[in-house]
Design a protein around this nucleic acid. Sequence first.
DNA 1: CTACAAATAACGAACGTTTGAATCAAAGTA
DNA 2: TACTTTGATTCAAACGTTCGTTATTTGTAG
Lengths: 202, 202
Amino acid sequence: MDTRDYRNKLISTATHLFAERGLHGVSVRELSKAAGVSISMISYYFDGKEGLYSSVLEEQFSCFDYIDVIMGKESEPIEKIEDYIRWSIRRHREKPHLLRFYTSELTNPTRYFARIVQPAIEKVILILIEIIEEGMHRKQLRKGLNPEDTALAMVGMVNYYFLSTLATQKFVNHSPERDEELIKHYMDIFTKGISEHSDVTY
Amino acid sequence: MDTRDYRNKLISTATHLFAERGLHGVSVRELSKAAGVSISMISYYFDGKEGLYSSVLEEQFSCFDYIDVIMGKESEPIEKIEDYIRWSIRRHREKPHLLRFYTSELTNPTRYFARIVQPAIEKVILILIEIIEEGMHRKQLRKGLNPEDTALAMVGMVNYYFLSTLATQKFVNHSPERDEELIKHYMDIFTKGISEHSDVTY
DNA sequence: CTACAAATAACGAACGTTTGAATCAAAGTA
DNA sequence: TACTTTGATTCAAACGTTCGTTATTTGTAG
């Protein structure tokens, strides 16, 4: 190693360790030893352990770039949704360890995940609202659901898929060949309306 | 409080705290303070913090009693399966915090959960094998899946439902009215054969 | 020499555990 | 009945360890 990029070493090591055992399950001593870097580098490059954790979440889960790509396209709103779902599935297949953060964060009272990923989710919601306002979900609107709630429920459905994948990954082999099936399934849920599949409550 | 049952206090307090934040997310000092009990009681009644955690899992997730009831019934194997699924759904609705342990344990390298719940699962597998051997899953057997693998996959599918419930509990209201729907769905998967719905891999 | 990168060693705080004394009800004893 | 003994609980205090952080020192490139 000529390049002394200890920061990257810490990020990549932390990504896998935090994904496996969560924030509290890894100590800075073990982490730095695994990365082959001195302990003090964590506070040097990041704002301590939690800063490193936040950085991992930011770098690994950021979808701003692709959301910008989607928003910039001259495509129909419904195509943007399919685009996003397709991209999400591909990305999670390429980085399967990301899924583990969902479960860690589900029981994390500090909600780093929510704080960091929330802005990205809000962008997705904006796209969804676009479609909803085009009248595709008039039925939900009639039922008293506002667009924000309906859109948030849709984001929830997508995350639900990811978590389901994690839960069954020991038993079920999700092959890329079945992606189209899944995409169709979720697009179906979306276009037919969430309320037909489940009750949205807040 | 006349009854000095500090042990029960610790168990019930630990159940909710561990469910919320996991083993590493709770300290013995906080736990004992919440329970209104001295710290040393944890080591007195249990084998330390991890012993308390194990006891919580054992007491909360034990299904031996009901498995025994099912095994003792003079019912058809297929009825036993439905019986078990029905009972599981009811129990998880009554104790929703149990679901949170699934996510905690998914990323827990120590695998307390697997070690403790495994014996119970193996009993369930026995029941499933009963049915499989009666020829309901000849198709899977022809495909080279042994009964144990198929049964284990079935248990995975049931747990998958529970985790799905947790993942979507913010968005979806699972009403008891829809239980029959869910039970029918899983019985359907089971009788039609798992291989039609997913690929079993180990 | 200067400025930055990196390692060492030490810090106070918090961790889980253990100790030893205090408390109390029940059993034993004269 | 009055006193002692016993065993089970309970707690405050302290234990040694590990935590995350940081002050200081060392190494290195320009």
